[in-house]
Design a protein around this nucleic acid. Structure first.
Lengths: 353, 353
DNA sequence: ATGAAAGCGCTAACAT
DNA sequence: ATGTTAGCGCTTTCAT
């Protein structure tokens, strides 16, 4: 049997005052209006009885649960744990608890989980798993629920969002490849129904344009998922296109890892024959050979930023918050990129399919 | 302003019945005692008004929040996300929400977070981060809070726990190394203040005894953390002991990865000259060369098992649940282990420090 | 400075 | 089969 917790009533009985007095004495703000001696007595009794406030009851009364919902696609995706720690690092010290849910990028599941979070009366939501168009979260925001999205913006809405500077990342990477002498550069794009896939493909086209790199549409192939297997499949598709290329710019690290593996299986060396690049700089990349050249995004920092925005939203500072927060990225050059060797490599590539 | 949610009262007003009738009509169990026609009307009104039950209010009344606390050391440790998904896979469909907290293996933090969870009235706790001795969680359990620990047992208590068969795993691994001809086998042990470190070291001694493998105390070195850096440091320590060895059995994958890297830095090839083994079979191991031979523990399965036990505890089936659940493990032989080459390797090793 | 009383939204024992 | 009533533990307005 669960031992009954001590309540304000218990303390009131113990100290001979009214519950409301106890409530006030224990509230750092209201405490001011209570005789110091009484506060002391109440505090002592509370400590003695091991009093812990019941947040559920308080929440029912105040309509604030001091909890937030965090929606992510899948916690087993390496990119999310650091983001969650970032969120926690700002929210937890303030007394907020996070309820984390995995949507698996499934619309129905997302809708259901959003309801679950609202049923639990979360004070706000950080949504790192919004889909292309997402009426459910837009509706929640319209109902007045504080919402901030992470890694992705909801179109046609005024929901604040935190994203990384995908354009700059892709552009820096393309420039890096150009400086190594690459001219025929392929792109393995991410799923187009996901934010990042879409944004990075657009960024690729734009950067290519800016840097006067010819884009061969046959050298752009789109993955259906952000994983190694799809990276491998896309690389194979690139090879069988017959178009020569000396570098592959991938929309994220996992696609890049899969591409490198697929190259290896065919006896093509990365980076000597083909350079491959990733995006995100996910954890553990240092352990995998060749060490991947990639774009580092702020993972922990994105979590912090989103949490801070949500805080301001929850404190009704709505007018004061910027809709857009773009976090800087950083090119991380490691071992998977190298100068173009010589013309024979390119011929060798084309001939290898 | 947060739009007011529709409540039972709203539906009652709308349909001209009493709130308690509404409450019953909407409860799948109580529904039975209500005229079908009335149920229909109430259901229709509820749908029309977009009614969502307020779990906070219900929880205050029923003293069940339908939420559980999950304590882990650190979500960025690769081993935990699959465990969390396992927990979620059984609890979420039943309507439970999980509040996940990271203790960072810090005692004070753990105590504080445990209080946080209790303040929020969680119905139970899955604790995957218990320390060697852990009075706080023991106290919580004694107060009647359902608790199950994962990966570790709390000594001198009757708190149910789910662990992996460390003994079998270590033993199988040792046997595997023996079959490859290894006789001088080193052990990089994990931190002894952590469950797994302790258990696996004990298992190593026991297995060595069972298999009549001579244990050289100088070939057992203890890491202070379960990470790559410590793996490297310990490997260096083994080399500088001057004692020859042909295989290193590590207490987990990350230590093994660090050890392999340290070997590589010294020009010693794994597995040709030294075999190295891990434990856990953490995600992404397939991507790292040489692919690590390791012991696969059930990650998702451990989460499921713990959740199921917690469910039974929360349903007051306390007498019916086993205190101990030991999950089977599986030897996964990959590329980091190989037969002992010849005697010169061993001499080469000893001479290389 | 403190007490009294109401009520957040819901459930459940009791009454009819 | 439905209504009445009470109350979970807390906060907060209104009195005193």
């Amino acid at each position: 049997m669960l031992k009954k917790r001590t309540t304000l009533k218990d303390i009131a009985r113990e100290t001979g005052v009214h519950v409301s007095t106890v409530s006030r004495a224990l509230d750092p703000v209201e405490r001011k209006n209570i005789t110091e001696e009484v506060v002391k007595r109440i505090q002592a009794a509370a400590d003695a009885l091991g009093y812990r406030p019941n947040r559920i009851a308080a929440g029912l009364r105040t309509n604030r649960t001091m909890s937030v919902g965090v929606m992510i696609p899948d916690i087993t995706n390496l990119i999310f744990p650091p983001i969650l720690r970032g969120i926690e690092s700002v929210l937890e010290p303030l007394g907020y608890a996070s309820i984390i849910v995995n949507t698996d990028s499934d619309r129905d599941r997302e809708i259901r989980l959003l309801d679950v979070l609202r049923d639990r009366g979360v004070d706000g939501i950080i949504h790192a798993a919004v889909l292309r168009s997402d009426p459910s979260i837009a509706k929640a925001a319209q109902d007045g629920l504080p919402v901030v999205t992470l890694n992705r913006k909801v179109e046609y809405s005024d929901i604040p969002y935190v994203i990384s500077d995908e354009d700059a990342g892709i552009c820096q990477m393309l420039r890096h490849l150009r400086q190594l002498g690459h001219e025929r550069i392929a792109h393995i794009a991410g799923p187009q129904e996901l934010s990042t896939g879409q944004l990075r493909l657009a960024a690729f086209r734009k950067a290519a344009d800016d840097l006067s790199v010819a884009v061969d549409e046959e050298l752009i192939v789109t993955a259906t998922r952000f994983d190694e297997q799809e990276g491998g499949r896309c690389l194979a598709a690139l090879l069988s296109s017959g178009k020569p290329f000396t570098a592959v710019l991938c929309a994220n690290d996992r696609l890049a890892l899969g591409a490198i593996e697929a190259l290896r299986e065919r006896g093509i060396d990365c980076p000597r024959q083909v350079s491959v690049t990733g995006f995100n700089d996910m954890p553990l990349l240092e352990l995998i050979r060749p060490k991947l050249t990639t774009v580092r995004i702020q993972q922990h920092g994105a979590g912090r930023a989103a949490a801070n925005i949500l805080l301001r939203l929850m404190n009704a500072e709505t007018p004061g918050v910027d809709i857009e927060t773009v976090l800087p990225v950083e090119l991380v050059v490691r071992e998977s990129t190298a100068p173009v060797f010589d013309a024979r490599n390119r011929r060798g590539m084309a001939g290898s399919n």
